[in-house]
Design a protein around this nucleic acid. Structure first.
Length: 250
DNA sequence: GCATTAACACGTA
DNA sequence: TACGTGTTAATGC
């Protein structure tokens, strides 16, 4: 019954795992896009700024790859990533998209395990990372950082439970609506705001539908006054109704 | 019937 | 120009 959302990506992917040579130090302009910085004190911020690296990734590139050792805790400053798990021989399973403001990988950093997912850029994106060492250093001394991580883990648990529901939905319109709502999560993805920059093609890859069908679903959502379609993006008008779209009014 | 791919015209960045 | 959107036609399960 489950759709087991297929959806790969269009261009052939060339694997890279954040090559240090391509990265640059974090810049002033980046800092405003990092939600947890404000929870740190001066000394902690200073260390983070010294430690953090930023890299631009091209569409199709892998930010981290299943089986690779943990190096960084990552965050999206700009663009759109896809978290998936390519089963050895078969179609990849897309778990979720990661829009701006999203940070990921703390699970594997915490356990010091190899990455369990592939994180791939759907579009040209800017990704930041701090080392596992600094991540642990922050955990050891900053209550604010701990709160952020805990909140993040809790919120994401909700996301994955919601994702299981989405998988059981048969109505494509509802699947698109719920997947979209997940991307508009203000807690996990504070960088998104009201306007999510995503093409209908990219949304198709995340949801596991064709671009044409996604377009049809979006038109329906727009007609329902839940979103507005814009060039290269979508504006949310009513997040609550977007979350509940397709659920009969019980 | 419904979704998919392919192909096209059109508008926008 | 390159890309994203909206639409139609043919095909498949």
């Amino acid at each position: 019954m489950a759709h087991a959302a297929q959806a790969g990506f269009p261009p052939a992917s060339q694997a890279i795992a954040v090559a240090p040579a391509r990265s640059r130090p974090v810049q002033e302009a980046d800092l405003g896009n990092i939600p947890w910085l404000g929870r740190l004190d001066e000394a902690e911020r200073a260390r983070v700024r010294a430690d953090m690296r930023v890299v631009q990734v091209e569409p199709g590139e892998l930010v981290c790859r299943v089986g690779r050792p943990v190096t960084y805790w990552f965050g999206v400053l700009d663009g759109l990533l896809k978290m998936s798990n390519d089963s050895a021989m078969g179609m990849p399973i897309t778990f979720t998209g990661v829009p701006p403001g999203g940070w990921f990988g703390e699970g594997t950093v915490l356990k010091n395990e190899p990455y369990r997912y592939n994180i791939q850029a759907l579009r040209k994106s800017v990704v930041a990372g701090i080392t596992a060492t600094t991540f642990h250093w922050l955990l050891d001394r900053s209550i604010g950082f701990n709160r952020f991580v805990m909140m993040q883990l809790n919120e994401r648990l909700g996301q994955f439970i919601a994702a299981r529901e989405i998988d059981r939905l048969t109505d494509p319109d509802a699947r698109v609506a719920r997947s979209l709502a997940a991307l508009f999560n203000p807690v996990l993805y504070p960088g998104v705001g009201e306007l999510l920059r995503i093409t209908q093609q990219e949304l198709g890859y995340l949801v596991g539908l064709s671009r044409q069908r996604v377009n049809e679903a979006l038109q329906a959502l727009q007609a329902a006054q839940v979103i507005r379609i814009e060039y290269g993006g979508l504006r949310v008008l009513d997040l609550e109704r977007l979350r509940r779209y397709g659920v009969p009014v019980a």
